[in-house]
């Protein structure tokens, strides 16, 4: 029995190691053999994986796609999410707070393909009407959907961070004649800053890793984005869309796995950073 429990416990490590090993093994040959240069993969925007004469495996356009969509999404989600967390934790009366938290959890539980569906039909029409863009599925659409998806995560973690600030700080500051806003700006936000940063980073992680919703809403065009109304393709959407058509073992197949390695490195880095920041709080 003890052995079984232990196995369950360490299974997470085994899975992570196993996955990492698997995708690195699938990706490695194409780099080791020199048929695709890692530098070109990271720095060239040309992606022609099926061309007969002009085959290129440059992922830069999709790296730019991923980061621009995520960045734009965070630009919207972070202020909104932190604001909502502040409202919930500091200004909201107890009863509406319970309702809001339940709704927020529901929002987090909506499957990403449903979000993609909403982006594809509702948002794209609104975007075309309001901006006059030729197509409604573009960076802005993807970012809006991603923002909506990350807000619940940011809110719940940021609210936890604010709740962890001792009430004695609030009382001490209020007793000194500070207004509620002064308490919030001068005491709570600085005291909770590590937790809030972690909330933002986990939101970013969500954005970078999200696949289905961005595949459906960004337009899926491989190009360096120049405006928020350009269609873009993200690293995740590229893998989802092309892996089924790439012959197993081909260069194309292996480069898609290389993209997976890249994605994993990015999300791992974000998660580890968030974790270190949260740990930093506990120590101090």
């Amino acid at each position: 029995m003890g052995l079984l429990i232990r196995l369950c416990g360490i299974s997470a490590i085994l899975f992570v190691m196993g996955i990492l090993l698997f995708i690195v093994r699938e990706a490695a040959p194409v780099v080791v053999s020199g048929r695709v240069s890692l530098v070109q993969f990271l720095t060239r925007p040309e992606w022609f994986p099926t061309s007969e004469v002009h085959r290129r495996y440059g992922a830069l356009a999709m790296i730019a796609g991923t980061f621009s969509v995520t960045g734009l999404a965070m630009l919207m989600a972070v202020p909104f999410g932190l604001g909502a967390a502040l409202y919930l934790s500091e200004f909201c009366p107890p009863r509406p707070k319970e309702v809001l938290k339940i709704v927020m959890e529901l929002l987090a539980a909506i499957p990403s393909v449903v979000w993609g569906f909403i982006g594809l039909t509702v948002l794209s029409r609104i975007i075309v009407t309001l901006t006059g863009a030729p197509v409604g599925v573009n960076m802005l659409n993807g970012a809006l959907v991603l923002a909506l998806m990350s807000v619940p995560i940011i809110v719940s973690i940021a609210e936890d961070a604010l709740k962890a600030v001792p009430d004695s700080y609030r009382e001490a500051a209020l007793a000194l004649g500070a207004t509620r806003w002064q308490v919030t700006w001068r005491v709570l936000l600085p005291a909770a800053r590590h937790g809030l940063l972690a909330a933002v980073l986990l939101g970013v992680g969500r954005g970078v890793g999200e696949t289905m919703a961005v595949l459906m809403t960004t337009g899926h065009a491989v190009q360096m984005p120049r405006s928020v109304l350009d269609s873009v393709r993200t690293l995740t959407a590229n893998i989802a869309a092309e892996l089924g058509e790439a012959p197993a073992g081909s260069d194309h197949y292996r480069v898609l796995f290389l993209t997976g390695v890249l994605l994993m490195v990015i999300t791992l880095a974000i998660n580890v950073t968030a974790d270190l920041i949260v740990r930093g709080v506990k120590r101090s």
Partner: peptide
């Protein structure tokens, strides 16, 4: 003004603790 039984240092420097109320 109020002084509580258990001292609650606000999470900031000595200087900022004292300057908190005037700044507010």
């Amino acid at each position: 003004g109020m002084v509580a039984p258990l001292p609650v240092g606000l999470p900031m420097s000595v200087y900022d603790n004292v300057a908190f109320a005037p700044r507010c």
